[in-house]
Design a protein around this nucleic acid. Structure first.
Length: 340
DNA sequence: AAGGTATAGCAAAGTACTAG
DNA sequence: CTAGTACTTTGCTATACCTT
């Protein structure tokens, strides 16, 4: 590997632009920029035979500078553990950091909401598995005749939006962070994983939120009647870890989630509707929850630069550069934000 | 020449707010 | 309560380039 540190441009040009730039910009200018540590890196492809010492990734990538030929090995940063376990784990830890950034409110009330999808018509009486028309019990309002899971999944985000808007109307200072779980068969009596989206949301409000209110708003928004809303202690990390765990799991489950969307026939150009892979976001949060993902990534970069600089100062030389690359992806210590 | 790669750029999802 | 809209953030895909 080359000795200089590879740093991407502040506002990188598109691939088209970058080629045009290199064809009109004098070589001396480009090399000068490289000498100052700002390369125009692009991907060559995967490193053959997988892993590389010092880069914690199953499928590391080779990068090269368009101008000076400096090259670098970087992790793939994939969110799916089926593709790259180390990178998915790092992403999970960043999501966890976002989640943890909002749990330390010392006043108010914190909850951990689980919201589920509705299903075919069912009766209100616990334990009764017959159709409400047959058993004579009252029908649950969340039951939908001819329930279409693919359409429900595709409409799930707007239902969450409706629920969130309604709840915020009642609790204006509400803050939340929500992760998506794909329903598996493990907890169902028929063991059939139907691929319905569930929401797990950490929620905070200055005043108590009655479960009955949440249930009514959930059902009104289109969710199922089955939900959970335990109050959790301020600073409790369990819910944050839970949400982060399901985010990476959900990122890996898109193909198993029935989704109704537009399908393009590339032969004829015709656009029709049909079943497609899930197009959901794996997590979201209110703006006031805590740190954003961009802020967490910036923290990691600052931490990496500080540690790499420290290593250089200690005389570790070239080793500092590769260490900097791996540190960029690692977590700075929680509670002691690094100084630039 | 075909196949395979991840990114840059953009589209879509999601949040927050306002007006009717 | 819904629709409209501006804005932020995440996820998808056309692209250029390398390997076979």
């Amino acid at each position: 590997m080359a000795a200089s540190q590879s740093v991407r441009d502040e506002s990188p040009p598109s691939q088209h632009d970058s080629l045009n730039v290199s064809s009109v910009e004098p070589l001396a200018t480009r090399l000068d920029r490289c000498a100052r540590g700002t390369h125009r890196m692009h991907v060559l492809g995967y490193v053959r035979h997988g892993s590389v010492a010092g880069v914690d990734c199953s499928r590391p990538l080779r990068w090269v500078c368009r101008d000076c030929g400096d090259f670098d090995i970087r992790p793939c940063k994939n969110h799916r553990s089926s593709k790259c376990k180390p990178c998915a784990l790092r992403y999970r830890s960043k999501v966890r950091r976002v989640a943890l950034s909002g749990i330390n409110r010392q006043t108010g009330h914190q909850y951990f909401l689980t919201a589920t999808a509705p299903s075919d018509p069912h009766c209100m009486r616990p334990g009764c598995s017959r159709h409400p028309g047959e058993c004579g019990h009252a029908a649950c309002p969340c039951g939908v005749e001819g329930f279409d899971l693919a359409r429900w999944n595709a409409a799930h985000s707007s239902m969450w939006n409706r629920f969130r808007t309604a709840l915020r109307r009642l609790y204006p200072d509400l803050e939340f962070m929500r992760g998506v779980e794909v329903q598996e068969g493990d907890h169902r009596s028929d063991r059939a994983g139907r691929g319905a989206l569930h929401d797990h949301a950490m929620m905070w409000a200055s005043v108590p939120i009655p479960p009955a209110t949440v249930k009514a708003l959930l059902v009104a928004a289109g969710f199922g009647h089955s939900f959970d809303l335990p109050e959790v202690a301020p600073g409790s990390k369990r819910a944050a870890y839970y949400v982060a765990k399901y985010v990476t799991k959900a990122a890996d489950s898109r193909a198993e989630v029935p989704w109704w969307g537009e399908v393009v026939d590339y032969e004829t150009g015709e656009v029709s509707e049909g079943l497609v892979d899930g197009r959901y976001r794996t997590w979201s949060m209110s703006r006031g929850w805590g740190l954003t993902m961009a802020a967490v990534e910036e923290q990691c970069r600052v931490y990496a630069r500080a540690r790499a600089a420290e290593a250089l100062w200690l005389g570790m030389g070239d080793a500092a550069r590769s260490l900097g690359a791996s540190w960029e992806l690692s977590d700075p210590p929680i509670g002691s934000p690094p100084s630039p």
